[in-house]
Simulated scan of single mutants.
Amino acid sequence: MKLRIALIQMQVEMGNPERNFAHAKEMMEEAMERKPDILVLPETWNTGFFPRENLAGLADKEGKETTRLLSETASRYAVNIVGGSTAVQEGHDIYNRSMVFDRKGDLVSTYDKMHGFSLSGEPGYFRMGNHLSHFTLDGIECSMAICYDIRFPELIRREALAGVDLFFVPAAWPKIRNTHWVRLNQARAIENQFYLAAVNQAGHSGDTDYAGESLLLDPWGEDICHLEDTEEIAYGRMDTDVIKEVRTQINVFRDRRPEWDRVE
């Protein structure tokens, strides 16, 4: 099976959800001019990553605005949407949450970022998630992580062992560590032998210059598409036959020794 994926490398305005929701809508509509099967957005595209003052006032209450926009867009264009992530408030807690919608506009999965980036103080503002996300889009087994999560390979290997063929990584990754961004995503694609769609913020937001460099990688870790650092939309295609080829030639899942792979 082949699916066409659109990477929406969006520039986000810090602390301006109204503008960011409108801009995300514009970019998704632009992306649909080339009729992809899946749209992918970056991390915290509603608020930016992240306004420390009045985050609770800026976060999407119960995710209602995020759900409305993504569900309406998915059903209108009959497209799958991996909604990056938005800052979502539930009760007194704020989550860095991704929502995934199918072609009918139905919510098929949510994922709350599991690892808070301590260098930025994220754990002091967001409540971390406690579950993985495994979902199916057009018959393809999928999963995801958010930004800093990519540094924790045990999480991602767990999903690979569950049969994932397409993995998503929305992020707000700074330019100062852009080499880590590219190499970590390449490593995760190679070691798990799946397609990986990593979508980062672009440009300047708040006090941070973002790396951009969104990329779609094949199971060999090779670029299908790889953006620069400015706002842009790129398209690439995955092919499940390539996954079978890679896993036939170098079958790490058959050859692994789980008794020695466990991490306590």
Rank of each mutant, 00 (worst) to 15 (best):
I5P: 02
L7G: 02
L7F: 09
Q9D: 06
M14Q: 00
G15N: 01
R19P: 13
N20Q: 14
H23Y: 15
A24S: 13
M27P: 07
M28E: 12
A31R: 00
E33F: 10
E33A: 10
K35H: 09
D37C: 14
I38W: 06
V40W: 05
P42W: 01
N46K: 15
F49C: 02
P51L: 04
P51F: 05
R52I: 02
E53W: 13
A56D: 06
D60Q: 11
K61N: 03
T66I: 12
T67P: 13
T67S: 12
T67Q: 09
L70H: 05
S71G: 15
S75E: 15
V79T: 00
N80F: 07
I81V: 12
V82H: 07
G83W: 03
G84L: 04
S85K: 02
T86D: 14
G91W: 03
H92D: 09
N96A: 06
R97E: 05
M99K: 13
D102Y: 12
R103A: 06
R103N: 06
G105A: 14
S109Q: 11
Y111C: 08
K113L: 02
M114V: 13
H115A: 07
S118N: 05
S120D: 12
G124I: 09
G129F: 01
L132P: 04
T136K: 10
G139D: 00
Y148C: 03
Y148T: 10
D149F: 00
F152M: 12
P153R: 13
P153I: 11
E154S: 14
R157G: 01
E159D: 15
L161N: 15
A162G: 13
L166G: 05
L166I: 12
F167C: 12
F168G: 10
V169C: 07
P170F: 04
A171P: 06
A172G: 08
A172L: 04
R177P: 07
T179A: 11
N185K: 11
Q186H: 15
A187K: 11
R188V: 02
R188M: 15
Q193N: 15
F194V: 12
F194D: 04
N200E: 10
A202K: 06
A202S: 14
S205T: 03
T208R: 00
D209E: 05
E213P: 14
L215Y: 02
I224M: 07
H226T: 07
L227E: 03
G236A: 02
M238N: 01
T240W: 06
D241I: 09
K244M: 07
K244G: 05
K244Q: 09
R247P: 01
I250L: 10
N251D: 09
R254K: 11
V263H: 11
V263A: 10
E264L: 07
